[in-house]
């Protein structure tokens, strides 16, 4: 994919997610019983769903829940992951060994079943879901951060900084982290797409966003039964979700 297209798609999603409530759109929960499952029309540009709600409006709002959760969870997993990984590498010895085992253990936890359990037993609270996702996805980031910190600690400029009296956390923040970020950023961007996918899968299964919230996964799940009557109701959220995820992925592949 062309880089310019990727940035355009990402920019479109950012603008839409930020400005959706300000755009002159129909309300997402406004039902029109007289006009259900309509195709293109001037009143509803992308038609209506089974309850007569405007598909365009719902599709443009539908990324917001997953984006909020993905941003929160990614930020949390990035902070925990980088801190855990780089401190493990810096400490060395048995602390490093123990933290590495902990990371391996977290990586072995089956993600989706744990998410389903948490969502089912502790409710659909977005904050709980973000924290859970953030903790779960911290492990792969920690692994990458640990690996690249180990490499950097052996590099000449870090050794020079050490000889000049740099110690512990100061050394980490001043010399190592600015360079770790560059490597870890790719991993973080991939986590971001995975978290969006995980949350929309949860919504699709009925355990993420709850109706009538407009959310892409939920929209696809609701519209699937009416796919033959109005394919637009399924294709629109698929195009929105797909374009966002593919654009982030293309950005990561390029770096």
């Amino acid at each position: 994919m062309n880089k310019r297209i990727v940035y355009c798609v990402l920019g479109f999603h950012a603008i839409v997610a930020l400005l959706a409530p300000l755009l002159p759109l129909a309300a997402t929960d406004e039902q029109d019983p007289g006009a259900t499952l309509q195709g293109f029309s001037s009143a509803h540009w992308l038609g209506t769903d089974a309850l007569g709600r405007d598909i365009l409006s719902r599709a443009l709002h539908g990324g917001r829940p997953s984006l909020v959760i993905a941003l929160l969870a990614t930020a949390l997993s990035a902070v925990i992951g980088v801190a855990l990984g780089s401190l493990a590498a810096l400490a060395g010895g048995w602390i490093d060994e123990a933290l590495a085992r902990l990371i391996d253990f977290l990586l072995a936890v089956p993600t989706l079943i744990l998410l389903l359990l948490i969502a089912s037993f502790f409710g659909h609270d977005p904050f709980v879901l973000s924290v859970t996702l953030g903790l779960m996805y911290a492990a792969p980031i920690a692994r990458v951060a640990r690996g690249s910190t180990q490499v950097l600690l052996a590099r000449d400029f870090v050794r020079v900084a050490r000889l000049q009296g740099g110690r512990g956390v100061n050394l980490l923040i001043g010399e190592v982290l600015p360079n770790v970020w560059r490597v870890v950023l790719t991993e973080i961007a991939m986590q971001f797409t995975w978290i969006i996918l995980a949350f929309s899968s949860l919504s699709f299964l009925g355990l993420g966003a709850s109706p009538p919230t407009p959310e892409w996964g939920l929209m696809i799940a609701e519209a699937r039964s009416y796919m033959t009557i109005n394919p637009l109701s399924v294709i629109t959220p698929i195009v929105m979700l797909g374009s966002l995820v593919l654009a982030v992925q293309a950005l990561v592949d390029r770096e």
């Binding site: 996918l197 929309s200 996964g217 394919p231 399924v234």
Partner: peptide, 14 residues
């Protein structure tokens, strides 16, 4: 590989 399974499943179904 990038799209979620339910999207692939829905497209294949369609």
């Amino acid at each position: 590989m990038t799209l979620p399974e339910f999207v692939i499943a829905t497209i294949l179904w369609l």
